[in-house]
Simulated scan of single mutants.
Amino acid sequence: MVTDTEAAWLEQALKGDDEAYSRLVETYQNPVFNLCYRMLGDEAEAEDAAQEAFWRAYQALKRYDPNRSFITWLLSIAAHYCIDQQRKRRFTSFSIDSLEEDFLPDGGVGPEKAAAQSEQSQILHQMLTQMPAPDRAAIVLRYWYDFTDQEIADALSLTVPAVKSRLHRARRALAEQMQQHIKEPAYAERNPYESSAL
């Protein structure tokens, strides 16, 4: 559902009021940019992707269902675009800088704890860069944006069982790699997804 204010802006935007759409962009530019940054790992690319997502949303406004959350719909468009970009370049990077606030919420941690958390963040960074784009999108939408299975399915044009399968596979692979790292300090890079069916 949309708020009354959003509904008014959407109605005005549908009538060609660019100022009304600009208000929607201002309201949601941060979450859209953050999703793009987590997906693409590059600030400049994320800015371009966010602009493209808002442009695509503007072009598709007449197809928007007001019974659906506007931000969910908008993030779905952004996620699809980022997946397309990742597929095009075939090499993805996931900036760990975008995760620091999530993994280091307490600015007063001691140096030993901070070092351990930094190492864990680096390991997670390495693991996430190896995931196929749709799996990474599912993980980001679930754990950073609290999307439900159905919302992820809608966002990525998948079935709910496919979403559950992707999330399960991704969590299992992350857990296995973490265990492997604990057992083998000299962690060898390898991609557990190479033999997985997308």
Rank of each mutant, 00 (worst) to 15 (best):
Q130F: 03
P105I: 15
A186N: 12
F94S: 08
Y187I: 01
A153P: 15
K62E: 06
L74G: 10
F70V: 05
Q85D: 01
S157W: 14
D17Y: 04
E11L: 13
H80Y: 05
E26M: 11
Q59T: 13
G41P: 02
Q130P: 06
Y58E: 00
L61W: 08
D84R: 15
K183C: 07
L124G: 04
G16F: 03
Y28I: 05
S165T: 11
I152C: 02
R89N: 09
I77Y: 00
G41Y: 00
Y193M: 07
Q150F: 08
L99N: 02
A162H: 03
M127K: 00
E119S: 03
I83G: 08
D84W: 09
C36M: 01
Q180P: 03
Y145A: 02
L124I: 10
I182L: 11
Q86T: 06
V2S: 11
V140T: 04
H80L: 11
Y187R: 01
A78P: 09
G108Q: 14
Q150D: 15
T129A: 12
K15D: 09
A138F: 00
R190F: 13
D102W: 07
G16L: 04
Q120P: 06
H181T: 05
L104D: 07
S93L: 11
A13L: 05
L99D: 04
I77A: 03
Q150P: 14
D84P: 00
S69I: 04
E112M: 06
A114Q: 10
D154H: 02
A137C: 04
C36L: 02
E189W: 03
E100Q: 15
Q130A: 13
Y145D: 04
Q29D: 15
A79S: 11
T5Y: 03
